[in-house]
Every structure is written in C-alpha cells, then in structure tokens.
Amino acid sequence: MTSYLRPRDLEEAVVARAAYPNWMVLAGGTDLMVNANHKPIPGGILDLWRLGEIGFIRVGDGAIAIGAGTTWHEVERHPAIRDRLLPLALAAREIGALQIQSRGTLGGNIGTSSPVGDSLPVLLALDATIEVASVRGRRSIPYSTWCTGYRTSLLASDELIVAAHIPLPGAGTWTTWRKVGTRRAQSISKVMGAAAIILDGGTVVSARVALGAVADRPIRITAVEDAVRGLSLARAAEAARAAVRTSIQPIDDIRSTSVYRREVAENLVARFFTSAAGVS
C-alpha cells in the first residue's frame, strides 16, 4: 500500500519530507503521472497540490517571488509577470496546452530539472534564485548553480522548493524567450532559449543567454556572453552565432538531430540580438 499525506502547512510538509525522504513529492503531477506506468510504485505520496504557503505571486521592489505551487496558467495571466518578466509569461503560454498549464507548476518544472524544461532557461537568463525549505531551515540557491547533471540538482532529499525569486530587469534590459518544439502545442522542445540583454543605446553592455535541449541540463552560454560585450547589436548577433557554434554539443534523438539543434540554436541566439535592435 502507498501512504498518502496532504500536509496542512509547509511546517508539516518539511517534517514529513525529512521523515520520508523516499516518498514522492507531488505537485500538479503532470510530470510524475507520465511515468506512473513505468516506475515502481512509491512508498508514499506527499501531496503539495494547492498548498497555500507555496502558491503565491509577490511583487516586490526589486524582484518578483513566485511560489513553487503556482500553476503556469497563474503565471501566464499575472499582469506584473506579463509586464516585467515577459519571457516567463511567454514560456508559460507554451508549456503543453491549457490543461497542462492549469495543473503544471513552476516548482514541478524546477523539480524535474529536465533539459527540456521550458521555464528553466528563463530562470538562468533572469538570474533567479531558488528558495528551499527543510526542517533545518531555509536557504537560497542561485539558479545558475542549481542543475548538477541530467535531471539532478542541489535540492537535498529533505528539502522542498518554496519559491523562485526573480530580480526585475532594469530599464535598459531587453528580455526574450523562444521555443522550437516538434509542433505548435503539446510539444517537447527541440531547442529553446532565453536572453536578457543589457543595452546602452545600440550597444550591448552585457548579456545572459541560456539554452535548453542542447545539453544534459539547461545551460548558460557564457561564450556568447563574453563575445558580445561592447558590440553593436548587429555585430553581437554574428559574434553570438559563432560562439554558440563552438560551445554546444547537442545530441541526436527521436525528436531531432544534433545538426539541426546546433543550427537552430545559432539562429535563435542571433535573433535574440537582432530583435533587440527593434526596441532599443
């Protein structure tokens, strides 16, 4: 028999998590249920669905905090996120389709930590910090260090994800996101990415560029970030294209090819810079 616990509050949740580190932590279940047929039945389920303390969107002065239990639908329609964190709203709109967006959560995307998790390059590009909790207390982990390998992360076996804290981009920052999937909806990404480009007029001051589905985890493309500093957007686009080419080794799989992924990654990243020209 599988045990089941639906904690009243975060306190009870972390106590249970510490007591039963092997239990399945369930949020919307949209990742977990896909594997239900193939995975061994867990000893127990810790159900965080609609746990109030992790379901919130708080707009602060310098950052927006989004609770792990927030669904993609809630993310997508939140005015402040649409206004200030557009890439996240864009990603939310393209995760699965309406049904998945109503169940799937930010915390679940972070928890699965898949290389094709669509929100993850956004968290990298926007320099998010992940807040986690356990009976030992709370800590914050920069998302840039979060992923440790294929579907692995720094989250300890007694910890739960509480929220993502995303700093608000400054006035001169152009942010963007783009997904290329197998089709227009309900699709797994073949390549996707996000960027935050800090501009001074038409010149790139600095940039954070992240890609998904081109490595075993979502990655920042630091070669691009180094190459574009101080360049005009048009030149930055070309420099970025060249830097992408030499910094990723995507794989062939059932959904696409290495050649295609590399080529499209170059095009997307170059496009991030040329489309920034339209707004600066």
Binding site: V34, A97, R183, I254, R255
Partner: peptide, 27 residues
C-alpha cells in the same frame, strides 16, 4: 510535415503520443 513512425531494429521507436506526433489545432 510532421508525422512519422520511426522503426529501429524492427520496432516502433516512437510508440507514444509524445513522439509519434499528429497535428493539434494550433498546427
């Protein structure tokens, strides 16, 4: 433009709706 059944060693390698895709309304 998008459907295909991929055989590998005589077996359908994309035997699920995730990878054996058909158009959605969005397509």
């Amino acid at each position: 433009v998008l459907e295909n059944v991929v055989y590998k060693d005589g077996k359908v390698a994309n035997a699920n709706m995730t990878n054996c895709i058909v158009p959605t309304f969005a397509d």
